[in-house]
Write a protein that binds this DNA or RNA. Structure first.
Lengths: 319, 319
DNA sequence: CCGATATAGGACGGTATCTGTCCTATTTGG
DNA sequence: CCAAATAGGACAGATACCGTCCTATATCGG
């Protein structure tokens, strides 16, 4: 076993929550315990704080330092992380959505094929159950495009526009933007010679062509700002207005990052304003609050809730 | 920079989706390009397949091999993975739930404190929004106990039993078991000198004492099997029976791992049987199917749905 | 078809590093 | 107090590494 390999193996052992006595490490690594002590020193020099407890029953373990050490995962752990990241990508968390994708792309790149297969099948099996209104983005497309953005490679894909019109695209992908529960891609369309925004759940059969392109500055300088503005201008939006029979702090906690505008009416109720592009989702969030509420509008939401209420009442009133 | 440090730094660069020409790597690592070639060879000897494209515009990148290479994450990526794993722990996925926890424990152990703080605040901000019926387990408790299971350390915690009776426990934690959407801990209670099963969302202020204990064999040999049997015997369960106006394949897809027993009635409808310990959750899954349905029982579910239906109808019929 | 720019790898000498085998000091739990 | 654990100095022999040459080969663009 080479020098670097032994150091990595040691790091992997020390990342376990348990404590390792030096003698056992020496045996596993096939060296003397003096060398183990030297290896531990080396790791400390690299900035990874190996904690040691002295005395009988003592041992070594890796503690939290100032920088992330290399993570040494076994097969199952790698699969678990990949599945977790894929699920996270379907419900982007504000602030870390892009980092989450970068991590997924990095992992996907080095994931052995047999593990990648397990990830796919597990993702398929659990896709629908996580949340009925999570984004329908295919994680595979997301990964391909996230990789292409970083590698600055051109991408070809099929796009199903809003009216069901399909088209083939050839673009220079500049940035992925998570807006609410959807992913958008800001890209420069090579054939149309202009900027375009694509909704990722309408993208399919994406492939990176391998052709590199020069960095482009997004219109207006900031991609996130540009996509946000364009989407609010063009996409259909519903502005929900409702009164919730729930103290304002509780409502904020239950709605979390979906809170919208909340303001207290009295100690037991508050008003709520929120903007979304489907009434389904608005109705879903409202009904999962578990409290009484009154909806002021819009009419589409009222109608949708009326249908929902009738359906539920009808489902039981035969008894 | 030491030898091993340079190798790790190289590995970190090669994990990026982009391709790196040898000359640029040499510059970044502060060595000649001949040494870079030797380092690449070393990585290949370690089993990490560095892919190289020859010719002009060529370069190096890390490909998928037979084993997982050490993952070198930047701060944001590490936070994203931790948040993803915490979310995954709240909605355990059959088959990889334990691995998911192991990975989380491993990451938590080495996560720099400033990043750990960001993870906590992000988790708090998004806890409620993921799904209103996800498990209420505190990821911090979960991590502490998962670590103690692996390290075979005794744990003390406060436990709120079903009737609201609080108690302090001192146990030897043997295994965490994910059952449906809940986590259970099988442990040997030191003071009561017998096996006990704890629901993790009722555990608080857990601390590992540091005292080690000898490995124990779970009663019956298999912890998962034991916990499953005990829980079905003792925990309250509701057996939902309903007819769904949805083709059976579609229902299976939408319910995913929550499918229970589905059997086709005709081309457009099917019957559904499922067991859960709360009617809230049964009602939630039923109403998020987005189809007409008829509930046969149990009476508690019917009553719950009646309240839900009335609430929704009331919320709009003033208009 | 040719030149520019990549990867690939052999040979060699000087330098640095690493390992095992001693040794002693110190801490901790039973 | 004793056993077992971390901590680390000193030394000698072996090993590995690095830079500087060199040539071969593959690929893309003009």
């Amino acid at each position: 076993m080479s020098d670097a390999a032994r150091l990595l193996r040691l790091l992997s052992l020390l990342q376990t929550p348990r404590e390792w006595p030096g003698s056992e490490l020496a045996e596993r690594l096939g060296v003397t315990s003096r060398t183990v002590r030297r290896d531990v020193d080396r790791l400390r020099d690299l900035g990874y704080p190996v904690e040691a407890t002295m005395g009988a029953l003592g041992g070594y373990r890796l503690g939290a330092g100032k920088a992330m050490p290399p993570l040494l995962l076994d097969d199952e752990e790698a699969v678990a992380i990949a599945v977790g990241l894929r699920t996270a990508a379907r419900q982007p968390v504000a602030g870390i959505a892009e980092a989450s994708l970068r991590a997924l792309a990095k992992l996907q790149q080095v994931l052995p094929p047999r593990l990648a297969r397990r990830v796919s099948s597990l993702t398929a099996a659990t896709a629908a159950s996580a949340s009925p209104f999570a984004s329908l983005v295919d994680p595979a497309q997301l990964t391909i495009i996230a990789g292409a953005v970083q590698a600055r490679e051109r991408v070809r894909f099929a796009y199903a526009a809003q009216e069901g019109v399909a088209s083939k695209r050839h673009v220079e992908p500049v940035q992925l933007v998570a807006l609410g529960r959807r992913w958008y891609l800001l890209a420069f369309d090579v054939e149309r010679d202009d900027w375009r925004i694509f909704r990722l759940d309408r993208v399919s059969t994406a492939v990176a062509t391998g052709a590199r392109f020069a960095a482009r500055v997004a219109p207006g300088g900031d991609a996130t700002e540009y996509v946000t503005r364009k989407m609010y201008e063009t996409a259909p939006t519903y502005r929900a207005r409702a009164t919730l029979r729930l103290p304002v702090e509780l409502a904020r906690a239950r709605l979390a990052d979906f809170a919208g505008d909340l303001s207290a009416l009295d100690d037991d109720s508050c008003t709520w304003h929120s903007v979304e592009d489907t009434v389904d989702y608005l109705a879903f969030r409202l009904t999962s609050l578990g409290c009484d509420f009154t909806v002021q509008g819009p009419p589409e939401l009222v109608e949708h809730l009326r249908v929902m209420g009738e359906r539920i009442t009808r489902s039981v009133d035969s008894l």
